[in-house]
Design a binder for these strands. Structure first.
Lengths: 342, 342
DNA sequence: CTGTTAGCGCTTTCAT
DNA sequence: ATGAAAGCGCTAACAG
C-alpha cells in the first residue's frame, strides 16, 4: 500500500525545495555535496522512485521505441526483436511490439498509434508496398521520429535501413544448385513488389545467366510462405514439359512443402532433385533431410538496427543521416542440395 | 515540421477555453452539440493529436502493459506474446517486451523497470524459482499493479495465473507410450524447482503407477532443453542395466536430440524405441520422423492471460480476485510413438 | 453549457 | 548553492 513518494515529499522532510531535490538527484554540479548526500539518503530511505511519466511529459521523450513486424511468431522476426531488445536494454529503452499480420491498414494504424504514444523511434519491417499508407509514413517523418527499416525496406529519402544482400543470397543459393549439376532450376518467389523477394529473384536469375543457363519464366512460381504453397508449386512444376530438377525457394516453409511433395512422389532428393530455401529457420537444420538455406543473421540485424537508431537519436534534426547497412547472407549447405554422386 | 498542436491552440482559435475543448473531445454529455462539432472540426483541420504522455501523467495510467519472458525467440513464447498482443490491441494497450534470459537477477530488474515505467499490468512467465527477487514481486504487489503469470507460475497469494495442466500433459504422453507397449519408459525432465517440470514428471510417474509399471528413479534424467542434452541423455540411459525402450521428454529439443542419437546407433524408432516430447514446437510436425508432442496452445494462453488482465484492471483494489485458469494439454500423436506392429 | 482553477511530478530559467 | 515560479498537456472539481 506504499503511497507514491514524490520529490516534494522528500523536499518537505528536509525543509528544502523540490528544485533542490531534483538537482541533487540529477547530479547537478552546483549543489552542495552535503545536501546531495542527504537527499540521496532520504530518497533511498523513503523508497523514492522517479516518475517516468512526468519526466516523459516534461521532456517529450518516452524512452520507448516501437517495433512493427508482420508477426512475432516466426523465428526470424522473433530473433530480430531479441537483438533489438538486447541492444537497447542497456540504454534504458523499452521495446513496444506491434504486429501487422501483413495488413497495410494495420500497419498504418500501428504507425499512428506509436507516434501517438510518443515513442522515441520506430524500427520496422514493412508488410507490403502500397501507397495507401504513405500518409502514415509522412506523419512519422514530420514528427522527426527516427525511422529505421530492417529486412523489408521501403525507399524513403532520409530513412535508414538494415537489410541483407538478398540478391547475393539468391545468387549463392542458386549457384550452389548449379554446382550440384542441376540444369533446370525453378524458383518459388514471394510477393515481388517487396524488394527482398524481387532481389532474391534477381540474384537467382543472374546466377543462371552467369552460368550459361537459360532463364525460363515458367520456372518462377509466385507463392506464399507456407508448406501448402510449396506442395502446390511442385504440382504445377512437374506438369511442365521439362520439369525442373531443383528449386530455390524464397521461403523455407515452401521449400519444406516442396520436399514433402517430392517425397510423396518418390522423387529422390538430392540426387534427382535439389532444394534450397531461405531464412535458415530452425527446422531446416533439424530435419533428417536437412534443408540448405540462406541465413539472414536476424540477431545481428536486430542489434544493428538498434545501433543505427541510437546513432540517429539525439542528433540535431538538421542533419539527416541516411544509413544503409547491408549484411552478408550466409549459405548453409545441407543434405537437400548435397549430391552424393558427383 | 508540424508543430505540436495542443488543446490550447484549438481553444485560442475558437475563443473558448481548453477545458471546453477537452470536454468536447471526450464526448462529455454536457456540451452544446454545436460547439462539440466545431471543436471536432477544427481539431481535425489543425491535425490535433492527443498527447498520451500528458494523459498518462494525469491519470497515472500509461496504457502499456509489460510482458516478461525468458526469451522471445522460442516459438512458444513468441506465440503467447502474439496472443497477448492481439487480445489487448483493441483495448488500446501497447505491449512492452522484456527478456530475462533465464536470469533471475534480470527478472528483478525487469520488474522494477516496468513498474518505474508505470505499466498498467505485468504478464510474465517466471524464469526460475529463487527467493532473491521476492522483493521485486512484493514491489509490484504493493503498487497494486495487476500481475498475471502464464505457463511458469509462482505461488503468490492474490496473483492470477494461466497455465496448462502439466500433470495431465505428462500423464497422457506417458500413457500413450504405454499403450504402444513400452515397458521401460524414461523421462527427460527440466529443472524440477519449476512447477511445470515438476508436474510433468508427476504426471509421468502417475501414469506408470496407474498402469502397473514400477517407477525407476534411474530413468529420470534432468537435462536442459537442447538437442545436445537429449543426445547426452541417451548416452547415459543406454548404459543402464536395463535400458529403456521409450522416452517422455519435457522438451521437444531434447526429444529431438534423443531421436538423433538413437538413429545414430541404429535403433529403430518407433518399433524399438518410442519418443514423445512437449510443447509441440513447429519442427516436431515437420520432421520425416515426426515427433509426438504435447501442445500447450500458446496462442490461447496468451489471449487468456490478456483477458484475465482486463478483468483485473479497473477493479477496485479492495477486491483481490485470484483467478487460476488451467488449460487442457493436447497430445499430438505422431510417428515417433506410433508403432506399425501391434 | 462553459469558464476558472488547480494539479499530475518533474525540470528549468530566473532570482537571490 | 538554493528558492520561487512557470510550464509540459491534459482533466476534473467547482462555480456560475
Amino acid at each position: 500500500m506504499s503511497e507514491k513518494i514524490t520529490i516534494y515529499d522528500i523536499a518537505k522532510k528536509l525543509n528544502i525545495t523540490a528544485a533542490t531535490v531534483s538537482r541533487a538527484l540529477n547530479n547537478n554540479p552546483k549543489i552542495k555535496e552535503s545536501t546531495r548526500e542527504l537527499v540521496l539518503e532520504t530518497a533511498a530511505s523513503m523508497n523514492y522512485k522517479q516518475n517516468k511519466l512526468a519526466l516523459a511529459l516534461k521532456s517529450g521523450r518516452s524512452n520507448n521505441i516501437g517495433v512493427i513486424v508482420p508477426r512475432i511468431d516466426s523465428n526470424f522476426f522473433a530473433s530480430v526483436i531479441r537483438g533489438i531488445e538486447e541492444e537497447l536494454y542497456p540504454h534504458g529503452y523499452q521495446v513496444i511490439i506491434c504486429q501487422t499480420h501483413e495488413n497495410p491498414k494495420r500497419e498504418s494504424e500501428n504507425l499512428y498509434t506509436l507516434i501517438d504514444a510518443q515513442v522515441d523511434g520506430i524500427l520496422m519491417s514493412v508488410s507490403g508496398v502500397n501507397n495507401e499508407n504513405d500518409s502514415a509514413f509522412r506523419n512519422v517523418l514530420e514528427k522527426n521520429v527516427p525511422l529505421i527499416f530492417f529486412d523489408r525496406s521501403k525507399h524513403i529519402e532520409g530513412v535508414s535501413s538494415v537489410t541483407i544482400n538478398d540478391f547475393k543470397g539468391g545468387y549463392i543459393a542458386t549457384k550452389q544448385l548449379i554446382n550440384q549439376g542441376c540444369k533446370n532450376i525453378a524458383h518459388l518467389s514471394g510477393d515481388q513488389s517487396l524488394e527482398i523477394f524481387k532481389n532474391r529473384f534477381l540474384g537467382y536469375k543472374q546466377a543462371l545467366i552467369d552460368n550459361g543457363i537459360e532463364f525460363n519464366e515458367k520456372y518462377v512460381i509466385q507463392s506464399k510462405s507456407s508448406v501448402e504453397a510449396g506442395k502446390e508449386a511442385i504440382d504445377i512444376l512437374l506438369e511442365l514439359e521439362t520439369p525442373p530438377d531443383a528449386i530455390f525457394s524464397s521461403s523455407d516453409f515452401a521449400a519444406l512443402g516442396a520436399i514433402q511433395e517430392l517425397k510423396e512422389r518418390n522423387i529422390n532428393i538430392p540426387d534427382d532433385f535439389c532444394v534450397a530455401g531461405f531464412s535458415n529457420e530452425p527446422f531446416t537444420k533439424f530435419m533428417e533431410m536437412s534443408i540448405t538455406s540462406v541465413d539472414q543473421s536476424p540477431l545481428e540485424m536486430g542489434r544493428m538496427s538498434a545501433r543505427v537508431f541510437l546513432e540517429q537519436v539525439d542528433k540535431t534534426d538538421t542533419i539527416k543521416i541516411e544509413k544503409k547497412v547491408v549484411l552478408a547472407p550466409e549459405l548453409h549447405i545441407r543434405k537437400s542440395s548435397t549430391r552424393t554422386t558427383s
